[in-house]
């Protein structure tokens, strides 16, 4: 157990193991994504009220779920890098931010596209939408802070502190935005509750959520590999890898 933990700190080992994980995970993810998309887009019944427009749920919900989870992955990686001074956790944290920001952005854009036919508007100041927008700002803040430092080691530590502050704050932000909404206007728009969804629509959705998690993992690992190569570009093993 501990030797595994220590090996995680070694860039060449992580580079190798992530390469062999990606070799089967990436094709599997693509197959699952295609299967889920085809199942959801072609083989489920149209919604009673929303017709075919609801099908964007198969992109929208998975992106939103994984975007949220991604922040916690980033925060845990940040905590590990602060506590155990583990370089690879720092790499993971840095690699999380753009992936999470992209997923949050996808969730917001698909939400807007979905909102136009069903609610008649691109944007409403709904509690959930607003908190997703704030999540995007949190991701972008981490990226901006990292880029502002010239000393990348300090940048990693500073971002780790910021993500930890963010984890304490995310529940507060979510709760407060929820209350803000309920205080100002009656709940005129409700997202369909997950439990009220028909099983024939739920299963492809679950498959898509699973695929998006896998996609996140793939993107994270690929991003990490790039970052490892960038940081270790002066070491022998990278020179051998590139030169050979």
């Amino acid at each position: 157990m501990w030797s595994f933990f220590h090996k995680l700190g070694s860039p060449p080992w992580l580079y190798r193991i992530s390469g062999s994980i990606l070799r089967w995970l990436l094709p599997l993810t693509l197959i699952a994504l295609c299967a889920g998309a085809v199942w959801g887009l072609f083989y489920t019944a149209p919604d009673f009220r929303q017709g075919n427009s609801y099908r964007i749920i198969y992109i929208h919900v998975p992106a939103a779920v994984v975007a949220l989870a991604g922040y916690y992955v980033m925060a845990i990686a940040g905590a590990v890098s602060l506590i155990w001074k583990m370089k690879m956790a720092d790499v993971a944290m840095k690699a999380c931010a753009p992936v999470g920001a992209a997923l949050t952005f996808i969730a917001l854009v698909t939400g807007a596209i979905w909102g136009k036919p069903t609610w008649g508007t691109w944007w409403v100041w709904d509690a959930r939408i607003t908190s997703m927008l704030i999540l995007l700002f949190l991701y972008l803040g981490v990226i901006a802070l990292y880029e502002a430092f010239d000393n990348k080691e300090a940048a990693g530590k500073a971002c780790a502190v910021l993500t930890l502050v963010g984890t304490v704050n995310i529940p507060i932000i979510y709760k407060s935005v929820d209350w803000w909404y309920s205080l100002h206007q009656p709940a005129s728009i409700k997202f369909t509750g997950e439990s009220s969804i028909d099983p024939s629509m739920l299963y492809p959705l679950l498959l898509m959520i699973g695929s998006f998690y896998a996609l996140f993992t793939c993107a994270l690992l690929m991003n990490m590999r790039l970052e490892i190569l960038r940081r270790e570009s002066r070491t022998g093993w990278v020179r051998k890898l590139v030169g050979a």
Binding site: F137, L138, F149, N169, I172, S176, V177, W179, W180
Partner: peptide, 30 residues
Amino acid sequence: IGAALTVGLNRGGMLIALLILPFYMPVLIF
């Protein structure tokens, strides 16, 4: 927190706003 994170950077001004405004939002709401 924002000030401490950006104190070593020359271009702190704009960055500190980007970092801490999301955390200001709950306070503004209540």
